[in-house]
């Protein structure tokens, strides 16, 4: 807990704070959805502590309810989480010099929002304590917010009127992460291509269309970046 860790923690927390409020409705939606699926309060809390992932929790619920085979549920969760392999690889140089136990904890804590806000700044810093602080503070904040508001959703599930389309709040939460990312042209190309490809490939089994769509989006963004550089090089 030295000075640069504390400075990193403060800056990381401040960078993530505005975005983190978006977790609140999403967490409540997850809590309500688990109760609506028939989980007991203890089961819902247990799942949230163990999994700690909105997309995987919400995405596997219909399969659990319909009594799908275990391998299909796990495969779906894995596919929904493959993006984290990509995030984990992209952010891993920032964990250079951090002890194993802290890296294990960081893996458990890694969420989309903190990655989106922090990856670029963490990779640009040469101070490992600052980087770890910059990751840990917003990640622990995200974890606490998530657990508290899922619990509120779990306990308050009976109070929400049926048929209010509350599940759409999860989509809104993802959109509020997406829009600020799509600021540069290659990023916008990646987003559009990824989305359109996911729609076009929706017929693939096991939600593999989602992974295929992500791959198409990444390739399109990469290609757009090269094309843009090529044009800049040509300009006088």
């Amino acid at each position: 807990m030295n000075d640069s860790f504390r400075r990193g923690a403060r800056e990381g927390f401040r960078a993530f704070l505005p975005l983190s409020v978006g977790l609140v409705p999403w967490a409540m939606v997850t809590g309500v959805a688990m109760r609506a699926a028939g989980f007991s309060i203890v089961e819902a809390i247990g799942m949230t502590l163990m999994v700690f992932a909105g997309t995987a929790q919400i995405g596997t619920l219909p399969l659990i309810v319909s009594g799908a085979p275990l391998w299909l549920i796990v495969a779906t969760a894995l596919v929904l989480n493959l993006r984290f392999v990509i995030f984990s690889a992209a952010i891993s140089p920032a964990f250079e010099g951090i002890p194993l136990l802290k890296r294990l904890m960081s893996g458990y804590l890694l969420v989309d929002g903190v990655f989106a806000v922090g990856a670029q700044r963490m990779l640009a810093s040469t101070d490992k304590d600052w980087r770890f602080g910059f990751f840990l503070a917003p990640s622990l904040w995200a974890w606490s917010l998530w657990q508290v508001f899922v619990l509120i959703g779990v306990l308050g599930a009976e109070l929400v009127p049926q048929g209010w389309s509350l599940e759409f709040m999860a989509t809104i939460a993802l959109m509020t992460l997406l829009v600020p990312l799509a600021a540069s042209r290659p990023m916008l190309v990646a987003a559009l291509a990824g989305g359109v490809a996911a729609v076009a490939l929706r017929g693939m089994p096991l939600k593999l269309g989602l992974i295929a769509g992500i791959m198409v989006g990444i390739a399109a963004g990469f290609a757009a970046e090269h094309w843009q550089h090529g044009k800049e090089a040509e300009a006088p």
Binding site: I86, F87, L178, A190, A191, A198, V199, F222
Partner: peptide
């Protein structure tokens, strides 16, 4: 690959959102 992966978050979020809407 590392540079290409910078596009992963935008592509993944869009691939989750667009089919839903």
């Amino acid at each position: 690959l590392q540079r290409a992966l910078r596009y992963a978050p935008a592509a993944a979020l869009s691939a989750l959102v667009l089919p839903d809407v």
